[in-house]
Amino acid sequence: MAGTDRATLTETEQIPAPSRLAGLAMKVLHTLLGLTLLSVVAVNFLNAASRYLFGISPLGADELMVYVVIWAVMIASILSLFLRSHINVNLLPLCATGRFHHLLRVIHDLAAVVTCGYATYASWLFIGRISTLGVKSMGLGVPMTIPHAALLFGFAGLTLAGAVMLVRDLSALVRNNPCEEVEP
């Protein structure tokens, strides 16, 4: 899958400090996202156990789990795009070399920026509409702008990550040099 075409560094080469820092930050973020999902599983278990064993259904537990998962997925999608570890069909880029490989990456980055930019704009408009209505969730009474803001945050982050990658890959296309990838 993706990630097989990453530039690899041998043990004798030095990894620049910003890349090490970015790699460490991404490892920490992966760990936090994993712990977040484990906490959702724990809430789900406690919710089911209290419902079936004691006949008590905690108010808003299902809502809370859904909102946390949506936020986690959107944050993880930004990380996944930046690391190029998302699910994709990369048969052509695996076979491509040189400038053609860089051109394919530029096209991929451009598609990500355009589609995620449009989704960011649509999310912004939607949040504007529901905020004027003052809609709140049924269980927890959370303003619905908060869970919907996850989509705005996620798509804006994806647009920004795509733009950073586009600049990096355009530079690599012009120089015909492989770009350095940040390893998780």
Rank of each mutant, 00 (worst) to 15 (best):
E181S: 14
L24P: 05
G117F: 05
N88I: 08
A96E: 00
L110F: 09
F82N: 15
A149H: 04
S50P: 13
R51I: 03
A22D: 11
R105T: 02
L53A: 15
C179V: 12
A49H: 09
V114A: 06
G162C: 09
Y118D: 08
Y121T: 02
G60A: 00
A111P: 03
L46G: 15
D169H: 13
I87P: 06
A2C: 07
H108N: 15
R168G: 13
S137P: 02
G141F: 07
R51G: 09
P16R: 02
V28R: 01
A61Y: 05
D5W: 09
A7N: 08
L104M: 02
I15E: 01
K27L: 06
G134T: 00
M65H: 06
M26N: 13
F45Y: 11
A149G: 15
G154P: 07
T120Q: 13
A112T: 12
T115F: 09
L170M: 12
A17D: 12
T8W: 10
A72L: 00
R99E: 00
A17Q: 10
S50D: 14
D109F: 01
N177E: 15
A17C: 03
S57V: 04
A150G: 02
M65F: 11
L35V: 05
L94M: 10
D62T: 13
P143Y: 01
I75N: 04
P93H: 00
L46P: 09
N177Y: 12
T115I: 08
T97P: 05
G157E: 00
P147N: 14
V66M: 08
A149L: 14
L103M: 13
C95N: 15
S19T: 14
A22V: 03
T10P: 01
A2R: 15
I87D: 08
A119G: 14
G162D: 00
G139Q: 03
V41Q: 11
I75P: 07
I130A: 04
L33V: 06
F153D: 03
T159P: 01
L21I: 07
N90K: 04
A150M: 06
V114M: 05
L46W: 09
K27R: 14
S77V: 00
A76R: 14
Q14T: 11
R84G: 04
V73Y: 12
V114K: 03
H86I: 03
A122L: 12
G98A: 01
S77N: 15
R129S: 02
E181L: 09
A42T: 11
I130P: 06
S57C: 03
L32Y: 07
L110G: 04
H30F: 08
P93A: 01
V113P: 10
R84A: 10
L79K: 15
T132I: 12
F54Y: 08
A122E: 13
L83Y: 04
F82Q: 15
I130W: 09
V89W: 14
H148R: 13
S19V: 10
M1S: 08
C116I: 10
T36I: 09
L59T: 13
P143E: 00
L32V: 11
V167D: 10
L53W: 15
G134D: 03
L170E: 11
P93G: 02
G157T: 13
S19N: 12
V113Y: 09
T8Q: 12
N44V: 12
G154Q: 02
M65K: 08
